[in-house]
Design a protein around this nucleic acid. Structure first.
Length: 382
DNA sequence: TCTGGGGTCCTAGGACCC
DNA sequence: TCTGGGGTCCTAGGACCC
């Protein structure tokens, strides 16, 4: 089965940090980190020069959401604790995340791409897949056109990979970052891809790559050469077969332009660990607030849910979840609060807690304020 | 001075039904 | 009396991604 598609993966370069630089151009060229819940920079009343927070002055539990390439040179990457990154780059500027601005720029770059190639799969706020199979033009030229359109619409840079399938396109977009275009063809992809670490494959994370290493497999080429039966024996039927196929350049997943949400959730890590008894009032307030926010999210997106769940993370970072499926759907805050309260009764509350979360799943679209019931009849929310 | 918040998908066991 | 499968739903946990 020959795959004759042409798939692009477009990835914005250091997206959140780059959006911030649009607002604060004086920070261009400096190590800048986005993360935490700090205050926005303010201009001094007289001088007009903006005051920025130093990473070294940060106190709390935040992590790096994005860093500029200058900050990455210090070893500061996404997901790293801010306190830890402050040791690596104390003089870096710390900016709080401004999701409204990121969402605006996200809509903007996607709209610019859609003008040229409308077959787009959303992969989050800063990346997309594009099926270019039906679009005219040589691949490099087309990629440069897309890059120019994104830059003109947003002032932001992106990297693009073009390949016969999504997995290869995704790896390709990362090969010449930032601002690069990489085109992989059926004839040449192996030369570029097989020497890379198996960890580069989207779907092979820290655990799987560690297990592969222990089996003597480091590179994608080694994964491709491993017998399928060997991979199946170590990773199970589904994962083993998938790894073997994908390392051999086979990935038939289509670019999916429409999808329904499966769950909606809100969670919060506390400034300090809280105790179920000692901090009961504070916890109760946070819990109710999370339920109300989930309800508001459901309302805004036009869904009700049948399953409500909670998540707790204890001081030792171990997490537990509990959920409950109801014989009817609901979307109101008090109803979600009651269901989540039932879940809360089934977990140990004798230890300190660092995080509390509430989730709604089993989502059902709401029409005219009435939800379709599971048996086809209609049922009203509580 | 470790480790955010929002998601998706998969697995595995038990209940329950045919 | 023992011993089936298959299918679906529910629950809990974990891997992974952005």
């Amino acid at each position: 089965m020959e795959d004759t598609r042409r798939i692009a993966h477009l990835d914005m370069d250091a997206f959140f940090a780059s959006v911030e630089l649009l607002s604060y151009p004086e920070l261009r060229g400096r190590a800048v980190v986005v993360g935490g819940r700090g205050a926005v920079p303010v201009s001094a009343a007289t001088g007009g020069e903006r005051q920025f927070a130093r990473l070294a002055d940060y106190v709390g539990r935040g992590v790096v959401t994005t860093s500029t390439y200058e900050a990455r040179a210090f070893g500061v990457f996404s997901g790293m604790g801010l306190m830890k990154s402050a040791r690596l780059a104390p003089e870096a500027v710390l900016l709080p995340a401004n999701f409204d601005a990121y969402r605006r720029n996200s809509r903007c770059f996607k709209a610019a791409v859609a003008e040229i190639a409308p077959h787009i799969e959303d992969r989050g706020i800063d990346e997309i897949y594009i099926d270019l199979s039906g679009v005219d033009g040589e691949s490099h030229a087309l990629a440069e056109r897309l890059r120019a359109a994104v830059l003109a619409a947003t002032g932001l840079s992106c990297s693009i990979g073009i390949a016969p399938n999504k997995t290869l396109a995704k790896i390709a977009s990362d090969l010449d970052k930032p601002g690069g275009v990489t085109v992989l063809t059926d004839a040449h992809w192996r030369d570029r891809i097989w020497p890379l670490s198996a960890r580069k494959i989207n779907g092979i994370g820290p655990k799987a790559s560690e297990r592969l290493t222990r089996l003597g497999i480091e590179r994608i080429g080694e994964l491709a050469a491993a017998p399928e039966a060997f991979l199946v024996s170590h990773f199970g039927e589904a994962s083993g077969r998938w790894m073997h196929r994908v390392a051999n350049g086979i990935d038939l997943r289509p670019v999916v332009t429409e999808s329904e949400p499966k769950s909606v959730s809100r969670e919060s890590t506390f400034e300090r660990d809280l105790h179920a008894r000692h901090d009961r009032a504070a916890l109760s307030e946070i819990f109710t607030d999370l339920c109300m926010r989930v309800a508001a999210d459901l309302d805004r997106s036009g869904y009700a849910c049948r399953t409500v769940g909670i998540k707790l993370r204890y001081a030792d970072f171990k997490s537990v979840t509990r959920d409950i499926t109801l014989p009817f759907s609901l979307s109101d805050g008090p109803g979600i609060r009651r269901a989540a309260g039932e879940c809360l009764k089934r977990v140990a509350l004798d230890r300190r807690i660092r995080l509390l979360g509430v989730r709604a799943s089993g989502l059902i679209p709401v029409t005219d304020g009435v939800t379709a019931g599971t048996d086809g009849q209609l049922c009203l929310p509580w």
